[in-house]
Design a binder for these strands. Structure first.
Length: 715
DNA sequence: GTAGGGTTAG
């Protein structure tokens, strides 16, 4: 047991993330990939691997698959450790862990612990001339004729060393491949692996996967050895081109040819699976690597950290931190940045803050990316004090700024409603040399002015955008429309909308939501103008609004059409759509329709937790409802309760309705509107003294109110 | 000069 490389948390993950618990972790390794299933293969023999033969069928004959090699081992050396032997703090465990228990047996290795050795450089005295020559090649026309012309000027014969030096200094991939092919035709020396590797690296910059693959096949044909550097270049190029199946295919091929990946190739592949969101496979690979004696470095942990952040897996992030500590791996700047970003993804601002402090204390200075992550996290969390303190520190420490960080600061100001600070920043950007405001900056400012209801400043920005030719994007357009709608400046709204369409803005569901919400408080001519805009963005919505106005429309028809609209709408825009449509119905005095829509919204799960019940209290939660929807929900509730009182059914002691305090920047004054509606109904709900936005009524008050209403109705 | 792996915006 002493030799086991697993830590307590490993156990947790080996259970959570082993791809198939029938197979103990560390053995059978069935990847499930979109196109096919395959099994990792590697050689376990002591003899060095043979150079790659030419076809994969030959390969399989020569090298048995890993699964085949491991079969006898897996049935003899593995056992499940009884639960009592488990380390403490593994409360998440539901199954006994599986691991190696016979340390005298060799562990099957999935990666080579030895990194690929680089050939040492010898000094080339012709370096100046050759670099100058390479620069000429870089700068000349891409046509083959122009290139050939410059080639004539080569200052020294293209020996192996000279050619390599030039190849290393070529930048556009077109030039690299031309030069590579030329060197080949010169036939002065055999083209070794390093020539292919250098060329591939340049092709990777240009994302030319197909050419890289052709080169690789050329190597196979010419019996030039593919080494770890070749494979990692191919794999990362496939990854950057989003050709993940290709990346996996080449990784698989490595083992088949008997070449063991080293840690660079291995972590590149970890990243491939991480980018595919295949957490189980990554953890399985990770654990198998660890079981092979691999001590992962900061880069590998950065891959894991990013993956867990994307997966929103907080336990995963903690695991990465603890694993690094256990293995004595010091996080570097990139690891900190990745983990901070991940903390943001899982919404843990407090942990992000302490991680940042730990980083600064350890003597690592934050860069633009670090600060961008942290600023965004504080903004999203509405941690105004921390955000402003951080900003002060950035200024006094002279920490680096770039325009993404500027824009993120602006967005944070929008999130926190910091108008003056945003204006200051925006001016700084205008005055700066490298961080001029772009469409993001303008959008952030439009957001700030829009939610602060500062129409004039928002329109001034719009004029600047038109004059300066800054791109107006769909979010900026949405902010303007919200703001102009609330100010009832419908002609300006139409102008902005038409301008945006002309500039190529594609209206999305949020933009339609804004138009819908403007519709809900428009009358007369204005209504028609806004409807005309909405018609251009989403004609189906306009048809639906017309349809629900018609008295003859049946509930069945509304239901069908509403369902179809929701299906066409992105998930996050569905509730706002329903809210607005309910408001529109109420404003047109088609309250019956409003009730139908609320009913359907509830059925389709747009209002989860609208009603909550405990033995003592029933609560109506209308925080995420619009004013009209909240009124509708209250009426519906009162109707239900009335029936229950009449039938003398059991009722709790307390009734409450929660509107929220209405402090959010998008709040439409729901608490006061709700209070007004309660008064109109003369319902016995009172604003709670302890909690803003909570309206409470006792059973006795409610029952006597219901009874007096019934009496009045029958009288 | 250094043939290969990881991190920033609604």
């Amino acid at each position: 047991m002493a030799a086991t490389p697993f830590t307590a948390l490993d156990v947790h993950y080996s259970i959570l993330y082993s791809s198939d618990t029938k197979f103990p972790v560390g053995f059978t390794f069935p990847f499930k990939l979109p196109s096919k299933r395959f099994t990792l293969v590697c050689n376990s023999s002591k003899s060095p691997p043979k150079p790659p033969p030419n076809s994969s069928t030959e390969l399989q004959k020569q090298n048995p698959s890993l699964a085949e090699q491991l079969k006898p081992l897996s049935s003899t050396t593995l056992t499940d450790i009884p639960p009592k032997d488990q380390p403490p703090n593994t409360h998440l465990l539901t199954k006994p862990r599986s691991t190696w228990v016979n340390p005298t047996r060799p562990k099957p290795s999935v990666l080579s612990l030895q990194r690929h050795k680089r050939s040492s450089y010898s000094y080339n005295p012709r370096i100046r001339d050759l670099k100058l020559f390479a620069r000429k090649l870089n700068e000349c026309d891409t046509s083959e004729a122009a290139f050939k012309g410059v080639l004539e000027e080569i200052p020294h014969p293209p020996t192996r060393e000279n050619s390599l030096l030039v190849l290393n200094n070529l930048k556009p991939w077109e030039k690299t491949i031309l030069f590579f092919n030329w060197v080949k035709t010169q036939n002065l020396f055999p083209i070794e692996t390093i020539f292919y590797n250098v060329t591939m690296k340049s092709l990777r910059f240009g994302r030319q996967f197909q050419l890289i693959e052709e080169l690789a096949h050329d190597m196979i044909k010419n019996e030039v050895e593919l080494d770890n550097i070749t494979y990692s270049t191919i794999i990362t190029c496939a990854k950057r081109c989003n050709l993940f199946d290709k990346a996996v295919e080449w990784f698989e091929r490595m083992y088949k040819t008997g070449l063991m990946p080293d840690e660079v190739t291995y972590s590149a592949v970890l990243d491939v699976y991480a980018k595919l969101g295949k957490v189980e496979e990554v953890m399985s690979l990770y654990e198998r690597g660890r079981a092979s004696g691999w001590k992962p470095d900061a880069i590998a942990f950065s891959v894991l950290g990013k993956m867990f952040g994307e997966a929103g897996d907080y336990d995963g992030i903690r695991y990465v931190l603890q694993e690094m500590k256990a293995l004595g791996v010091e996080p570097n700047l990139v690891v900190y940045n990745t983990l901070l970003e991940a903390m943001g993804k899982v919404a843990k601002p407090g942990l992000a803050r302490s991680l940042f402090e730990e980083m600064v204390e350890s003597g690592i200075n934050p860069n633009e990316k670090t600060l961008t992550s942290l600023v965004r996290i504080y903004g999203k969390a509405r941690w105004a004090r921390d955000a402003l303190q951080l900003w002060e520190r950035m200024k006094s420490n002279g920490w680096p700024m770039d325009f993404i960080l500027y824009n993120t600061l602006l967005s944070m100001c929008a999130d926190l409603g910091l108008v003056d600070e945003a204006e200051g920043l925006f001016e700084d950007m205008k005055a700066s040399e490298h961080s001029k405001p772009d469409s993001w900056s303008y959008t952030a400012m439009l957001n700030i002015y829009g939610s602060g209801r500062n129409v004039d400043k928002a329109m001034k920005l719009f004029e600047d955008i038109s004059d300066l030719g800054v791109e107006l994007n769909v979010m900026g357009c949405t902010c303007l429309i919200q703001c102009l709608g609330r100010a009832k400046r419908i002609d300006d709204l139409v102008r902005v909308f038409e301008f945006s369409l002309k500039k190529g803005v594609k209206p999305d569901d949020r933009l339609c939501g804004s138009l819908l919400s403007v519709l809900s408080y428009c009358e007369g001519e204005d209504l028609d103008k806004v409807l005309a805009c909405l018609h251009q963005a989403n004609p189906k919505l306009v048809a639906f609004i017309k349809m629900v106005e018609e008295e003859k429309t049946s509930f069945e028809m509304v239901k069908e059409e509403f369902k179809s609209i929701l299906n066409d709408t992105s998930v996050e825009a569905r509730r706002p759509f329903c809210n607005c449509l309910i408001d529109i119905c109420r404003n047109k005095d088609t309250t019956e329709r409003a009730h139908e829509l609320l009913y359907m919204g509830t059925v389709y799960g747009l209002y989860p937790g609208l009603h909550t019940k405990t033995a003592d209290e029933w609560r109506l939660n209308v925080r995420s409802l619009s004013v009209g929807a909240a009124h509708t929900a209250l009426e519906e509730w009162v109707g239900t309760l009335t029936k229950m009182v009449e039938r003398q059914e059991a009722l709790p002691q307390l009734f409450s309705a929660n509107t929220g305090a209405g402090t959010h920047k998008f709040s439409q004054g729901l608490p006061s509107a709700f209070a007004l509606h309660v008064r109109k109904l003369a319902a016995p709900f009172r604003q709670s003294e302890e909690k803003a936005g909570l309206f409470v009524a006792t059973r006795e008050d409610l029952v006597s109110w219901v009874q007096s209403r019934s009496l009045a109705a029958t009288a």
